[in-house]
Design a binder for these strands. Structure first.
Length: 430
DNA sequence: TTTAGGATGAATTCCCGT
DNA sequence: ACGGGAATTCATCCTAAA
């Protein structure tokens, strides 16, 4: 009947010559399979109103796509799929109407201790419902940081914090490209309509690319033709380029990214790292104003300061947010793999004259029950467990290993859950 | 040994016309 | 409601130069 194509690729001794006699070429196979599809199906393919447009698609491909869509739909209805809000403002942002100040949390999720978990919003389908399931069924709050600064940053946050009486950091950071980079206004062409930057990532464009763009533009005195405009705009959007001269675009410098993300200038310089390293660390970080807005409700609750367990700290986005909110940091236990990042947080800690204690731990596996118990008995438990686990295997930019939550780095999410569970268990049974 | 540059798609959502 | 196009995306791997 059917020839199993996979069997042709199996390694090992071929069992017999029967396969040879059974073998028919791929075209014949397709033809044979094609004939097996129901006539009704074929009719609906031919009667498809967009059939002309999709002529080159072919019947089998059309059929397969239809099947995939159906399967997906069935899967989604079973698996309480999470939908992204539009506009992406979560329970509300300071600058837009439509605040929500009340929600009901599942019984198991009610704090303290409080937790605040972050990751990319555009994760593969099913990932956010899985993460929500592991975090006591709390629904994620999806917020785009373009409502807080001049760059987009679509992120989901699962937390059990109160959501009334939030307040933003002051002063408000610049919220358009022109406000953030006034000098670019002079060179900004009228055919570039951007007012916000796209997401700040871990790589920047090369000087060579900006040179290619300059060459493409200098052939024209006034406005370039539409196809050239499109090429330049596509590259500018892809690489977050800004205009710095006549026909000249440039990528953002590390200190400019620091400003957009709400960090003090030269924050990442402390590690003694290269430009590339700084851009990478920043690309993996929180947007401070966004996170601070959510954490601001802690200020009245803990006037004497808080103990923080910060997992996957990176360059210390959560710590900077709490500090800028003027919430005293009594104890910060910071888990971060990268030595450069640990140095950055350490030197920030010293520069801001913190009075509390900073403990850094390089490996998250080191935080087992014993170690946690030791830390908690010494410093009196944690008020907040904050962290964003690695997004490497969830992010759209990843061509190679976008494997979902079970991926090599992103599966560290389960360590966040493990540790949070331990902390909550120990503190609630006291 | 470190750093910059180039090549490398696909998953997902939004939007708009039919 | 549905399909197709446009837009967007906390990246990785390899190589050559420094």
């Amino acid at each position: 009947m059917y020839l199993n194509v996979n069997s042709l690729n199996t390694v090992g001794p071929r069992s017999s010559i029967v396969e040879l006699t059974d073998f028919i070429c791929a075209a014949q196979m397709a033809k044979a399979a094609d004939a097996l599809f129901p006539v009704e199906d074929k009719k609906s393919f031919c009667n498809d109103p967009n059939y002309k447009k999709r002529r080159n698609m072919g019947y089998d491909l059309w059929k397969r796509k239809k099947q995939m869509k159906l399967e997906k739909k069935l899967l989604n209805e079973d698996d309480n799929v999470v939908h992204l809000p539009n506009p992406m403002i979560g329970f509300g942002v300071p600058t837009e109407p439509g605040q929500i100040t009340q929600r009901t949390l599942p019984e198991d999720a009610i704090g303290p201790p409080y937790f605040y978990y972050e990751n990319v919003a555009m994760a593969p389908v099913g990932v956010w419902s899985e993460m929500s399931r592991y975090l006591y069924d709390v629904g994620p709050e999806f917020v785009d940081s373009k409502y807080f600064c001049a760059a987009a940053r679509k992120r989901g946050y699962i937390h059990n914090l109160p959501i009334d009486n939030r307040f933003p950091l002051f002063p408000f950071p610049p919220r358009t490209i022109h406000e953030a980079f006034p000098l670019t206004k002079k060179w900004w062409p009228c055919w570039d309509p951007r007012t916000k930057l796209n997401c700040l990532q871990t790589c920047t464009a090369s000087a060579k690319l900006t040179e290619r763009i300059r060459k493409a533009l200098e052939a024209y005195d006034d406005e370039p033709p539409l196809n050239v405009q499109k090429y330049v705009l596509d590259e500018c959007r892809k690489w977050n380029l800004v205009w710095v001269g006549r026909n000249k675009v440039a990528p953002l410098e590390p200190d400019e990214v620091e400003m957009l993300l709400g960090f003090p200038k030269n924050h990442t310089r402390g590690g003694g790292s290269s430009r590339t390293e700084r851009i990478k660390s920043l690309g993996n970080s929180f947007q401070v104003d966004t996170v601070a807005y959510h954490l601001s409700v802690l200020k009245d609750m803990y006037p004497g300061g808080i103990n923080v367990l910060s997992l996957f700290s990176g360059i210390g986005g959560a710590e900077v947010a709490l500090h800028r909110l003027r919430i005293p940091l009594k104890t910060v236990v910071s888990v971060e793999k990268s030595e450069v990042n640990r140095n950055i947080v350490r030197s920030w800690w010293e520069q801001t004259n913190q009075h509390g204690t900073l403990i850094d731990i390089p490996d998250v596996q080191e935080l087992n029950g014993d170690r946690l118990e030791q830390l908690m008995s010494r410093y009196g438990g944690f008020d907040l467990v904050v962290g964003g686990s690695p997004c490497n295997n969830l992010a759209g930019s990843n061509r190679h290993h976008r494997d979902g939550l079970e991926g090599k780095e992103s599966s560290l999410f389960y360590d966040y859950c493990r540790i949070l569970d331990l902390v909550r268990l120990m503190q609630r049974t006291q």
